[in-house]
Structures are given as C-alpha cells and as structure tokens.
C-alpha cells in the first residue's frame, strides 16, 4: 500500500513546526533567517508560505506517482520507492541537473556553492515511512493540517472534507490527477494557482515521462530498420559500381589487347 501525505491548508495556522521538524530530520540548520525564507532551497526542503488573509500554503516535494525526475535521471539516482517517497542516491548522481529542469513542481534544488554539489529535496522521510511512522512534518503538526496515511484513504478523506464543507474549499485536490497523481495531496480554500502553484494546464493530467518515452521507444526501430536500410542501400549502390568497374576492366583488357599490335608496329 503506498503512503501519502495530506495537507489541508484550511487547518494550517502557520506555526512553522513542520519546517523545524523537517530541518531537524534532515540535519539542516534552522534559524530566523531560514525561517523567513518563502522558497524551498538546498537548506529548506519544505516551506509554509504566508498568503494574504492569514492563509497558508505548504510547499514540498509532491512525490509523483510517475516522477519526471526519476524518469530523466541518466544514472537512476532518483527512484520512486514502493512506499511512495521519491528518494535520491547521491553516490550515483553525476550532477547533470536534468531533474531540476524536468520537475514540473520545481522541487529539486542544487548546492550551487559547493565544490561537490548534491541535489537536495524532501524525501518524505522515507526511513520513517519504512518503519511505519508518519513523516516528521506530520508528526510535528499541532493542528492535523498535515497527516500521513495510505493514499487511497487520504484521497477519500480529502473528498469527504470537500463534500462536508463545500464552501470552505476550492473543489480541487492538488495531486489527485496532476502529472498522473502524486503522493502528496493538498486541500485549499483559495485556488492553487494563487497559492504558489502553476496554472493547472502546466501539470496536465497524465504523467510527463510518457512524452519522452514516445520518442525513446522508437530507438529499437531506428536501429534495426536503419541497419537494414543503410546496409541495403550500400549493397545496392556498391553492386552497381562493382558491375561498372568490371565492365570497365573488360574494356580495358580489350583495348590493351587491341593496342598491343599497334604498339608493336611503331
């Protein structure tokens, strides 16, 4: 059963306990300066954004069902685990940064100032999930705005909350269908594109790796048909020249034979 995180922005009070817990779990330093930052970065894997009218919106890795980052990574340093988290193996990474380019949520961050730079992002506390624990941000949340559970159950719960309080939510669950679904689900009272997300057209409904796969899956055809076609063309054109060359040397023989007596006379 794959795990998921549900964040209900209407329950969030902006206490930043999740930010602190996240920093602790990932051994990142956390102070007033970091706390004031409104963007995720190499030193801040989750952020609670302050929006007008005492509204909040969290940002963290969405842990896509079919993650772009994992699909584009040439060395499989990014992988989707069966529990749900998308994790990063720093010993494989060669630093091409295709994951940063590809991520539809702009989640992976890079240690630009490091001489040995790594990609940094939320790992959905994959170690904790494996042990059956909730993520550290869920654990730390005093209001239950962030909770961990089975994805199916949390999706049902999210739908129930919207149905029970239709006026309190936009009727959209972020992560239900975006890029083919994600392991982080979100509820909000204000439209997501006004809370730091892109317009929904950017995400689309299907997984993005399908786009590249359409091209990649043609490689065997290009290789096999290419070999036959090019080899065949070579064989045909070369045969033509072999024949021409053979005819020429025939002629040559004849002409030298014909030229011999003439040469002998002179």
């Amino acid at each position: 059963m794959s795990k998921a995180v549900l964040y209900d922005a209407t329950l969030c009070i902006g206490c930043l306990e999740c930010e602190r817990a996240c920093a602790r779990y990932n051994s990142l330093s956390y102070d007033d300066a970091v706390s004031a930052e409104q963007q995720t970065s190499e030193r801040k894997f989750t952020v609670v954004r302050s929006l007008p009218d005492d509204k909040y919106m969290r940002k963290l890795c969405m842990h896509c069902a079919d993650p772009s980052c994992a699909s584009v990574c040439p060395v499989a340093a990014m992988t989707k685990t069966k529990e749900g988290p998308v994790v990063y193996d720093e010993t494989r990474c060669m630093g091409c940064r295709y994951c940063l380019v590809a991520c539809p949520f702009d989640v992976p961050k890079y240690q630009w100032s490091a001489v040995l730079p790594l990609v940094r992002k939320c790992t959905m506390c994959s170690d904790r999930l494996k042990k059956g624990l909730a993520t550290s941000c869920s654990d730390a949340c005093p209001t239950g705005a962030t909770i961990t559970g089975d994805r199916d159950a949390l999706l049902a719960e999210a739908k129930k909350r919207i149905a029970e309080n239709p006026g309190g939510y936009v009727h959209h669950i972020m992560g239900e269908t975006e890029v083919g679904g994600t392991s982080v689900l979100m509820l909000s009272a204000i439209p997501f594109d006004k809370a730091g997300f892109r317009p929904n057209s950017v995400y689309g409904k299907g997984p993005l790796p399908a786009n590249t796969w359409k091209a990649l899956s043609k490689i065997p055809d290009v290789v096999s048909l290419g070999f036959v076609a090019l080899g065949g063309i070579w064989w045909i054109t070369n045969r033509r020249h072999e024949v021409a060359a053979a005819e020429l040397s025939e002629k040559k023989k004849k002409s030298t034979e014909a030229a011999k007596p003439a040469g002998g006379e002179s």
């Binding site: 584009v72 990574c73 040439p74 060395v75 499989a76 340093a77 295709y98 790796p209 590249t212 091209a215």
Partner: peptide, 9 residues
Amino acid sequence: MWNPRSVMF
C-alpha cells in the same frame, strides 16, 4: 548505472 527511460541516458 542504467536508466533506459532517460533521454540523458
């Protein structure tokens, strides 16, 4: 370290 789904691969 293979990942045949990756264009970069």
